[in-house]
Amino acid sequence: MINIDSPVSPAPPKVEVSNLNFYYGDKHAIKNVNLTLPTNKITALIGPSGCGKTTLLRCFNRMHDLYDGNRYEGEIVLDGQVNILSRRIDPIEVRMRVGMVFQRPNPFPKSIFENVAYGLRVRGEKNKSFIADKVEEALKASALWDEVNDRLKDMAFNLSGGQQQRLCIARALATDPELILFDEPTSALDPIATRNIEELMDGLKKQVTILIVTHSMQQAARLSDYTAFMYLGEMLECDRTEVIFKHAAQLRTRDYVSGQFG
């Protein structure tokens, strides 16, 4: 069913999800999902509303641990070594290696500089020049540096929506994560800002593995190397993007990507 290591792109797996189940209290939200994220590729999660895309995404950095009554089963293995869902692994450790960008830009009520430096400060980094270098690097990587380098002390709220979202990406990048989770990162943005972010992500995949949840099939088609289709909490199909969009194995996937339901 899962055919990611196709002969065309032999990308080694960064993350392997096996038999993942997730429960909100009694509600069985993720059902027996298996998925592999290839290193330095963009994998898109698509599917109709309420199918569990975001829920699955939030398993990768244990965000569900923040609220009571949530339960994981199964494994998400990073680098073939660690099951990050293991009880022995502290979710904070996981989040220090896995970055996340949210649906709506959520900059902290701090300066632009402090927003990007936050992850480093949280880690106890005290070296000022190191932090400044990292902030600059991250802002450059998120294509924001030219717009903000003269006003790093300004409040982050003063930026436009698209700039805020790029700031959030810079915030996630500053700590050199190995995997970044994007939860519909462009759904609150206008088309131009969306295009900027997409170009940015395309460039980022040289250094990080990316998992993105998106509502927009065009976005998935444009952006991702691999696409996974979810339906009612199950992973119906996952393959290279052109396969999913042109020759999907399952009827439901074909219907969804051709816009028959959604």
Partner: peptide
Amino acid sequence: ELREGSYAAGA
């Protein structure tokens, strides 16, 4: 959202 942003950064 702000809290989640901070937790996601490993705080």
